[in-house]
């Protein structure tokens, strides 16, 4: 390459100054690229991942958001629901009532990295991410948002089907099951029913008794694995689901044209 010899002594400043002069006039008589931040703000796109908000009317307290949070910045906290909130609950309000203590997520934004998994894996679409990003605070405690501060109320709720984004469902290992029905009590979608098991079982007392076992309605299961966690006899485990009705992570309905 002979580029080296092409440059003369005047190219020390002539060539670069051509560019800078041009830009100087451009930004003096035009608008510079800078955004004067506190006075003017740029609009985030609709997909922006900002601060979370939770539509309590849709939330069923399954805890999947806390499960998938890579930073564990999201915890399920017990809350007291008012009667109005009970009535407004669109999805499984009877469950929320039945449960002894309903739980709703609280977020520590000091740990949050805004990855958006909680939004993507929420089976009801209750967890949303807004485009609000100015949440700086002077203390770490100020970044901990209790469950009730995350609540938003929407007029027209999105009607989404329950979806198992976790790709797994619980499977019963029937022998150790003691028929305590804890899984039924805790299942957030009411997809478990207790029914008479296939065979009798010897209890500790020596009696032979027919034990009720849980049966799963996999079309309603969201794979939250709450039943697995509460099971006292460790008779449940998660297995990759083969249910074809469950869709993947597609949040956008229609693919755009190329």
């Amino acid at each position: 390459m002979s580029e080296k010899s092409e440059l003369g002594i005047m190219d020390i400043f002539v060539n670069p100054m051509k560019v800078t002069m041009k830009q100087f006039f451009k930004s003096t008589f035009g608008k510079p690229a800078t955004v004067m931040y506190p006075l003017e703000k740029r609009d985030p796109p609709p997909t922006y991942r900002g601060m979370n908000a939770i539509i309590w009317d849709l939330c069923i307290g399954c805890g999947i958001c806390a499960e998938v949070c890579p930073n564990r910045c999201l915890k399920m906290k017990p809350v007291e629901l008012s009667d109005e909130e009970h009535d407004r609950a669109w999805y499984g309000s009877h469950l929320a009532k039945r449960k002894h203590k309903p739980e709703r997520p609280a977020i520590n934004f000091g740990h949050c990295m805004f990855c958006g998994f909680c939004e993507d894996y929420c089976p009801t679409g209750a967890m949303t991410m807004t485009d609000f990003y100015e949440m700086a605070d002077t203390s770490r405690e100020g970044l901990i948002y209790p469950a009730r501060t995350m609540k938003v109320d929407l007029e027209d709720l999105p009607q989404l089907p329950l979806t198992n984004y976790m790709m797994e469902s619980p499977v019963l290992d029937i022998d150790p099951c003691i028929g305590c029905s804890k899984c039924v009590d805790n299942c957030p979608t009411n997809c478990i029913i207790m029914d008479v098991g296939p065979h009798d079982k010897t209890l500790k007392s020596g009696k032979l008794r027919n034990v009720e076992n849980p049966y799963f309605d996999y079309t309603l299961c969201i794979g939250c694995s709450v039943c697995v966690k509460v099971c006292p006899a460790d008779c449940l485990h998660m297995e990759p689901t083969s249910n074809s009705s469950l869709s993947g992570l597609t949040t956008e309905e229609s693919p755009t044209e190329a």
Partner: peptide, 21 residues
Amino acid sequence: EVPSGSRLLYNYIRIGGVKRD
């Protein structure tokens, strides 16, 4: 930022495809 929703750490490519079209 437009498809992924974030400006620096996108978390856009997921196992099995991408997050959204």
